[in-house]
Design a protein around this nucleic acid. Structure first.
Length: 770
RNA sequence: GGGUGCUUAGCUCAGUUGGUUAGAGCGUCGCAUUUACACUGCGAAGGUCAUAGGUUCGAAUCCUAUAGCACCCACCA
């Protein structure tokens, strides 16, 4: 027996060696593994690609463990398994991370030319990717590295753009002038999902608008007012509806029409609301309903969140005070000015309401009118709802179905334009001449204090793309002589990751059902043909809308098939007091630190046991320590078995046993193990890894080690040769069987011990028969 | 304002379609032992299953209401 069994189990000297052995075996790739005879069934998981902007956290470790368990289990069951790894460029997220880095260096992204910034972030993500891959390996991920994908691989970019082009052609994508959630800090618009809401207490100002008093929390937007709205049923204002009123807004006077709209709540405030279509979502919608009657949006707050009156008011004393002020400063000033004129009727300082914030920087979002690309969601949502209703996609746990339905049934169009450089370029082209005519020619050199926003400024509401496609003609197809310029915006990162399953598997447009049939008869099947739809999408519930729902919609749209059959949603990994881990709280646990100290197997068990799908997990180092102890228990029990069994193989053993009879006790023990195996298999098949793992743990420690081994001692040392042999047989048999059951959970230690077993049949435990 | 969960031992959580005495891990307490393993063994204490009703021969489990907690969604200025 090897010397090392005399010491406690040491993961650090085992794990790296074992991972190399696996990699060398080639068994991570589906085709290398030669499972049972016949036609093996495919089993495929596409790994949610981690963001290539940092290192892995415990959430990633959980994801990796869950998926690795499924993959290893299915591999041992003889399935042709593919676990496809990848990394996500994570557009906005990464740009935010990189901007923080720039800030520390005293630089700003607004002063770096696009191409250079792109290159810098590219290098940054490439470096992170290498680190992340190493981390995944340390966790034992048995994924097929030969197939790894990055969301900015050439084919992914092109196919993502093709989807856009196709959707545009079919009217599912349109360019709209709409109010977008604009983050003043990050200088980009965001989708609904990228906003968060928070309750704030602010002042509600009652301002006299001629004969009417309106209530508002944003007096600084009054310069952009184009109407006053009341409820059609409100008797108080009945006579004023349709009339124009003169309103003093301190910088000057404006005329506003009083209109009737059903959204106005009679009970709230004075029942009259100022309408500012350029800076408020509700008001924008009111304007859309009253386009004929009232003026459109007047932008009086610019992209930097500062007051800009130059288009609407003449310069005067108040103008000078306000011009260029940030929103909150402007609010104070305008209130003062209005008070001077006696136009503030009252102020309610205790008004509680929700504000929309940037989910990254928590700054208040400024709704801003912009020309952006939108995806029409309703036609995509309907099939996505149906697929789940029909049961083509099953949720684990099932309750997320309801959440999914609710979101899809109330879905809004999706803004997929982002004003950042880090992303997939939008294949839309504009005529340079048209832009030149507006005096807005894009500048290659960026002047100080002129941002990338300036760079895209020429893209105003009236500019229409003249060509949509990947390969634009040399000259504008409209005028025939001028150059084209590409849309400076990039896609929302989820637009590409929403297509991840079929993109990574190499879906080709030409793969119509009839063609692929002919093809499959002749040549090797493509990954897409073999593995799509994939079997399980395992990810966190927090990206159910961001990602899962969009994958379903885009997958159905492009391939006419669901992208996966099961959605397994795990929860958040929290600290031992159930607090969210965050850098500011200082309670972040680095998975690699845990692996270094206790081993990957112990970490994996700590993440799996007691962790039910959809629920958050309380993670503690004590828990890991417990499973580190368990690893040693396995080690020691194996040592005992190896010490007490001859170095022959199981076949020989079996052969002998045809002549010796197993004792009744041993038969009973084997039967007991068989029933454990059955029940564990059942739990594995129903995604209850937390139960499966616990059952094996409990059996191994408290039945195999505490009872079977203890009770074997006497017989092993006794005179009765048959009893001895019978005892040896079941020890080896149950140990081998247990290692198999444990392997998906604790792959390293089980593989290491397997290599010393006399009964070893396969080259690695990884491909043993379950 | 709408929705989804949760409430079971000191802590973290299981508990499948309602069916004997409600389980596990960690923790606590007692005892043992140089043993394959102290990263150990044996044993013990500890729960009126949030509360109040209801259905049932039988409820932690199903129904209703209440309370507390967590989260998600939402254009009342």
């Amino acid at each position: 027996m090897d010397e090392k069994f005399n010491k406690p189990y040491d993961p650090s000297e085992t794990e790296e060696k074992i991972y190399k052995k696996w990699e060398k075996s080639g068994y991570f790739a589906p085709e290398a593994h030669q499972p049972m005879a016949g036609n093996p069934k495919p089993f495929c998981i596409i790994m949610p690609p981690p963001n290539a902007n940092g290192s892995l956290h415990l959430g990633h470790a959980l994801m990796t463990t869950l998926e690795d368990i499924m993959i290893r289990y299915k591999r041992m069951r003889g399935f042709k398994t593919l676990w496809l790894p990848g990394a996500d460029h994570a557009g906005f997220e990464t740009q935010v991370v990189y901007e923080k880095k720039l800030e520390k260096e005293g630089r700003s992204r607004f002063q770096i030319p696009r191409e250079k910034l792109w290159q810098e972030i590219w290098d940054f993500t490439q470096a992170n990717k290498v680190v992340m891959e190493e981390q995944l390996k340390r966790l034992g991920a048995s994924c097929d590295w030969s197939r790894k994908k990055f969301t900015l691989d050439k084919d992914i970019i092109e196919k993502t753009q093709d989807t856009f082009i196709q959707m545009h052609k079919e009217g599912l994508i349109y360019r709209g002038n709409r109010l977008v959630n604009w983050c003043v800090k990050h200088q980009t618009g965001l989708s609904e999902l990228e906003t968060k809401h928070e309750e704030r207490t602010d002042a509600l100002y009652y301002i006299k608008y001629g004969p009417i008093t309106v209530a508002t929390v944003r007096p600084e937007t009054i310069f952009g007012d184009t109407a006053v709205a009341v409820n059609p049923k409100d008797k108080r204002y009945k006579d004023l509806i349709g009339k124009e009123i003169e309103v003093d807004v301190a910088v000057g006077k404006i005329n506003l029409k009083v209109i009737a709209d059903k959204v106005v709540d009679i009970e709230f405030g004075t029942g009259a609301v100022k309408v500012t279509p350029a800076h408020d979502q509700t008001d924008f919608e009111i304007w859309q309903r009253h386009k004929e009657e009232i003026e459109g949006p007047k932008e009086v707050i610019n992209h930097l969140g500062r007051i800009d009156l130059k288009n609407y008011f003449p310069k005067n004393e108040v103008y000078e005070k306000l011009q260029g002020l940030k929103v909150l400063e402007a609010r104070k000033v305008i209130v003062e000015e209005l008070q001077k004129k006696g136009l503030i009727e009252k102020i309610d300082n205790d008004y509680k309401h929700d504000v929309s914030l940037c989910y990254k920087c928590s700054n208040i979002l400024e709704p801003r009118l912009m020309s952006q690309w939108f995806v029409k969601m309703e036609p995509l949502a309907k099939p996505a709802i149906k697929a789940v209703e029909k049961g083509d996609i099953k949720f684990i746990p099932t309750r997320f179905k309801k959440v999914y339905f609710h979101w899809l049934k109330n879905i809004r169009d999706w803004n997929i334009s982002r004003q950042i450089v880090w992303g997939i370029p939008i294949p839309a082209w504009f005529c340079l001449d048209e832009i030149a005519k507006k005096g807005l020619l894009p500048q290659k050199e960026i002047e100080p204090d002129q941002s990338l926003t300036h760079w895209r400024k020429w893209l105003d509401f009236s500019t229409k793309p003249v060509f949509i496609g990947r390969n634009p003609p040399k000259k504008c197809p409209g005028c025939g002589k001028n150059d084209l310029i590409q849309d400076p915006d990039v896609f929302d990162t989820w637009f590409s990751s929403g297509q991840w399953p079929f993109l990574t598997l190499g879906f080709e447009e030409s793969e119509s059902p009839s063609k692929s049939k002919i093809k499959s008869q002749k040549s090797k099947l493509s990954d897409y043909e073999q593995f799509y739809p994939t079997d399980v999408m395992e990810t966190g519930w927090d990206i159910l809308f961001f990602w899962v729902a969009r994958m379903v919609m885009l997958g159905l749209y492009k391939t006419k098939k669901v992208p996966f059959k099961h959605v397994y949603l795990h929860g958040l990994v929290r600290d031992k007091d159930k607090q969210k881990m965050s850098k500011s709280k200082g309670n972040v646990i680095d998975p690699l630190g845990i692996v270094n100290e206790y081993g990957a197997d112990a970490l994996r068990m700590a993440l799996i046991i007691g962790n039910t799908p959809g629920n958050d997990l309380a993670f503690s180092e004590e828990k890991v320590r417990g499973y580190r102890n368990f690893a040693n228990k396995i080690w020691q029990a194996s040592r005992f078995v190896l010490m007490n069994t001859p170095r022959t193989n199981l076949h020989e053993f079996n052969h002998k046993l045809t002549r010796i009879k197993l004792s009744a006790y041993d038969k009973k023990r084997l039967k007991e193990f068989e029933s454990l195996k059955k029940s564990v298999t059942k739990e594995m098949d129903s995604f209850k890894f937390y139960i499966a793992g616990e059952k094996i743990y409990h059996y191994f420690w408290h039945t195999f080690a505490d009872k079977i081994i203890e009770e074997s001692k006497e017989r092993l040392n006794g005179e009765d040769a048959k009893e001895k042999q019978s005892a040896q047989f079941i020890l080896l048999e149950i140990l081998t069987g247990s290692l198999k059951l444990l392997h998906p959970f604790m792959p390293f230690i089980t593989e290491e011990i397997y290599q010393y077993l006399p009964g070893k049949i396969k080259k690695t435990l990884m491909v043993e028969n379950w």
